[in-house]
Design a protein around this nucleic acid. Structure first.
Lengths: 235, 235
DNA sequence: TGTACATCAGTGAACGCGCGTTCACTGATGTAC
DNA sequence: TGTACATCAGTGAACGCGCGTTCACTGATGTAC
């Protein structure tokens, strides 16, 4: 948290990261359920009890892993949004950057994706701090849409008008936090886009496209493009 | 599998179901990772070793649970599709029946939904037989669309035309099995609908709508309707 | 720069636990004649 | 209907395992003066 002053602090930070790295490796191989302090200690060549100098126990380590995963995903998403912003591509091209990044992130660490969007570990509450990176991710995703909107290049949503009034309160938090100037139907559309992205990535990562969608990359690209059109982006 | 002839067979069937019921109850309380033969035996008041007369071990029991969950979901979906078919409602109304059923099914057994669509249990392969109920579910979901199509009431998809040729091979299995007469873009649209449904249900069931979507039921209804319009259903 | 003391990292033994699975057994249920 | 035998359900003890966590300890690193 604070910058390391002494040599001891530096080592401590390094070892903390090493523990997390080993934990992530074991997560990738065995899944969250099999994550064990003893086997992490074994991998690091130290006594199991030593880990308690770094984490308050198994649950605290798991919390750190979850928070770290959210943060990593949010970081990459923000970077992708920024790069796309500077790229000078058209709206659709810039929009696709974050979804693509999310998919690659998930494919390269399926178990961490599962930690974030899969079945929650039961009897265990995700740390409150995840709200922050979650919001960063959402903001990065929506950014190209907001920019298109501000530039007058986002068409008003046409579908579902009659339900706008009813749905207003239901999506109010997202409306205020993410896209205050847009119409309710646009906000609803953005949430549906969120659902289709998470759904498509989860289905692929969790192995449900087997014998169903033979070219998940192409399908995902098409889905991302169609989703953008559905909320009013034009090519 | 075969009908019980003797009293012994009847008892055997009953106890098998009782074991599965207890397992499901423990699944609901503790999640898949905590599922244990010993605690199931304890709940049933019998020796742990006795369970081996009914299942070949923990993995076999888990397989049975997964297969049973798929089957239960497929059964309810088929029934909902059939009821809707007979109801005489309009296309949109009949279309919504299966998605609604899926959502209710998932909300009433979140951990079983997680077993099917959450992070897969690592080092463990889902049984092959799940292909059958999975296909039944898909068929039930698509049925109202196929019927609308056959009645000439399904509009041709307009978005994404240029990608139709590229995507054809990618979605060929679904095209052939589920909707052979439709255009490629329609098939792609159906898969996107599948993704948005699974995504929306998973996000709700796994707790991601907290402080985000305040009225998940209404949001889901709107999503279902919008999804149908996107693949060409008219109200 | 040197000394005295406090802080911290890591050890290793021990705790109690619940787990899946095997195995030889007992007694009840079913089958063939 | 009765008997002899085979099949099956369930028991209870035992196996070896890996787990999270605690605790008193040693020795190294940092701090104050």
């Amino acid at each position: 948290v604070s910058a390391p002053r002494t040599a001891r602090d530096r080592i401590r930070l390094e070892l903390t990261n090493e523990i997390l790295a080993v934990a992530r490796a074991q997560l990738a191989e065995q899944g969250a359920a099999a994550l064990s302090l003893r086997s992490i200690a074994r991998d690091l060549g130290m006594a199991p009890s030593a880990l308690y100098r770094y984490f308050d126990g198994r649950d605290a380590l798991l919390s750190a892993l979850i928070l770290g995963a959210y943060t990593s995903l949010a970081d990459e998403a923000e970077e992708a949004a920024e790069t796309a912003h500077r790229s000078g591509g058209d709206d659709l091209e810039r929009w696709a950057a974050v979804p693509r990044t999310m998919r690659f992130w998930a494919l390269s660490r399926p178990h961490e994706w599962g930690l974030l969007f899969g079945s929650p570990v039961p009897g265990y509450q995700a740390p409150e701090e995840t709200v922050v990176p979650y919001a960063r991710l959402a903001t990065a995703l929506v950014r190209p849409l907001v920019e298109a909107f501000d530039g007058g290049r986002l068409a008003a949503a046409t579908a579902g008008e009659p339900t706008a009034a009813e749905l207003g309160p239901a999506v109010a938090p997202v409306h205020e936090a993410l896209f205050p100037d847009a119409a309710v139907t646009t906000v609803v559309g953005v949430l549906q886009v969120w659902a289709v992205l998470v759904g498509a990535i989860s289905l692929e990562v969790f192995g449900h496209w087997r014998n169903t969608v033979l070219d998940p990359a192409r399908f995902f690209e098409a889905t991302v493009a169609d989703a953008a059109r559905a909320v009013g982006l034009r090519a």
